[in-house]
């Protein structure tokens, strides 16, 4: 594709620099019209629209990308804006990001009026446990799939693929009944057991994909040097797989961190909720509390988001590796 864009840009160059300049001027004019309209009507949407259209006229790629980026970030901006609103202005039609008379009251309410911190703590405990167990169990299992050609390997791999097809309801119903019969309703252990179900197959899948990219020569060399197979695995493969292991940990973490449906079915009592249940309650319950919902969302989202953006290239390559590339 790079050469495709080269051809188009060469063509532009041939038709003269003027064309780019004309587009720049056109874009500038559109943006200025937006600014004027915004100043006249006090609606800042016009400025945004003008700038976007101007950018589109000047360099259309940037116009599209900026517009789409705004759409992607939009819900985050909205929850930030709503979390800062005073209670009296929660239901308003304004779209400013920092509202007039912004306040942190919603944030403090989370800690003084709600079990918010407890919910986050529960989620954290569950999520970390699931992630650890998922990684431990999957690390060796995936290695077996990657290095040996044993009887049952192919059906095993196909089964792992098939697990992706199981409708959530097909597992939630029996797990709900089992958990209830074992009297694990309201116990976070019930939830941990349920989450491991989904964490393990996916983890094996990603890790196997990664191990496959490590040449077997490495272990063979080590074994020639006197290591046995397990030592070679622990000394060579595991350290080399740190990126993949942390990706698996993170995916299990992200999957369990925001899980809603199973938690809703298993955790009934407010005192053992995870945060998704708590936040949902702010909206669904008698006392709608938009401000608290938004503030809670910001608090649980921003750390994850920063982590994700900081490591996005790394994470994405991990997912691509495991789920699709062979």
């Amino acid at each position: 594709m790079s050469s495709l864009s080269e051809t188009t840009s060469t063509r532009k160059r041939q038709s003269g620099l003027d064309w780019m300049q004309i587009r720049l001027i056109l874009g500038g004019i559109i943006a200025v019209i937006g600014l004027v309209l915004a100043l006249l009507s006090n609606e800042w949407g016009y400025l945004l629209g003008g700038v976007l259209l101007g950018l589109l006229a000047w360099k259309w790629q940037h116009g599209i990308l900026v517009a789409y980026s705004i759409l992607s970030v939009f819900p985050v901006l909205r929850i930030i804006a709503i979390s800062l609103r005073p209670t009296s202005a929660l239901l308003s039609r304004t779209i400013e990001i920092i509202p007039a008379n912004a306040t942190l009251a919603s944030y403090s309410a989370l800690f003084t009026e709600e079990n918010f911190l407890l919910w986050v703590w529960q989620s954290l405990a569950i999520t970390v446990t699931v992630s650890i167990i998922g990684v431990v169990v999957a690390a060796t299992g995936a290695y077996a799939f990657s290095r040996w050609r044993f009887a049952g390997r192919r059906p095993g791999l196909i089964f792992l693929m098939t697990t992706q097809m199981i409708p959530a309801g097909m597992l939630i119903i029996p797990i709900y009944v089992i958990v209830a019969q074992l009297q694990l309703t309201n116990q976070i252990i019930g939830l941990v057991l349920a989450y491991i179900t989904t964490a393990v197959p996916f983890s094996i899948w990603i890790l196997k994909g990664y191990y496959d990219t490590i040449p077997p020569d490495l272990e063979e060399a080590a074994m020639v040097d006197g290591c046995n197979r397990m030592e070679a695995f622990y000394r060579i493969i595991l350290p080399l797989s740190t990126p993949a292991l942390s990706i698996v940990f993170l995916f299990n973490f992200l999957g369990a961190w925001a899980e809603f449906i199973v938690a809703k079915v298993i955790l009934v009592s407010n005192a053992v909720w995870t945060w998704p249940l708590g936040l949902n309650d702010f909206i669904g319950n008698f006392n709608t509390d938009w401000g608290k919902y938004a503030a809670g969302s910001v608090l649980v989202t921003v750390p994850v988001l920063l982590l994700f953006m900081w490591q996005s290239k790394y994470l994405i390559s991990g997912l691509t590796l495991g789920s699709v590339k062979s």
């Binding site: 009944v177 019969q181 309703t185 009592s269």
Partner: peptide, 9 residues
Amino acid sequence: QTAGLAGSG
């Protein structure tokens, strides 16, 4: 009613 299935809670 769910508590009826679990027998507790």
